[in-house]
Amino acid sequence: MTLYLLRRLLSLSLTLLAASIVVFLVTEIIPGDPAAFMMGINADPAAIAALRSELGLDQPVAFRYLNWIVGMLQGDFGQSYTYRVPVSELVGDRIAVSLPLTLYALALSTLIAFPAGVFAASRRNAPGDIAIMGVTQLGVAVPNFWFAMLLVLLFAITLQWFSAGGFPGWDAGVLVALKSLTLPAIALALPQASILARVMRSSLLDTLDEDFVRTARAKGLSRSQALWGHALRNALIPVLTIVGLQFSFLLAGGIIIENVFYLPGLGRLVFQAISQRDLIVVRSVIILLVFAVVAVTFLVDIAYAIADPRLRRQRR
């Protein structure tokens, strides 16, 4: 087990190292000079040069890469070029929006998907199942930014129940803040709920077909007893894996929705940072997101390995 853990940890570190090189190089070859962008169209070349040296952009590439990596290992993510505050502070502010939004969307999606999936599975091929599967097919096909626009049109502009965007901050009160996250969370949750409901249904149907459930039924359990008593618990494993994946997807994938609703979240931070060439922010946030994905995968692998010792030998 220890050997397995070490092996996995090594591969995790190598992935992160490779990711850091890729991200650094890509941001390095982006055309556009952060200093020139900040100084604008009439700037004096000497002033741009002065700013470049102030930002440390005149140092050699390898030096800046090592500086960045060593800094990150010590928990220092550098200072944003445009905002002139530590990147960690910016990220902290933005996570306070993105993380609750992600959890809100995930909660909504799970709350919709679980009952829908179970219901559909329990009425396989009946009208109810077909209706739910039809709706989820549609849900998967809807681009979330378009759905978001429709939500804005209906609830913000026509009915004026919600504001069309913006985030008042948690200081304004939890309920007020949650309200401003509601439309974005719905827009994010719909496609995820559709995927999850489909996974839930097929996972349940698969387990219902398995031998132990058949045995249970042969022993006289009704279909719904078998469903609730045996199948559900076992069907949850793939479902939870998907939920885990969706979490990291939503954390980074809310970028377009954050733009539509003008939320000061992590995705919008990177999006803006790319267009302002605030490269230090771009790099650090992407590495953090990669780290989140890799870490979640690692934990899932470990959990599987603990649950099923055979995997330790087979899994590659």
């Binding site: 000497a46 040296s53 102030e54």
Partner: peptide, 9 residues
């Protein structure tokens, strides 16, 4: 010399 004023002109 080392000013970062955008309108140095």
């Amino acid at each position: 010399e080392d000013s970062t004023n955008a309108q140095k002109a």
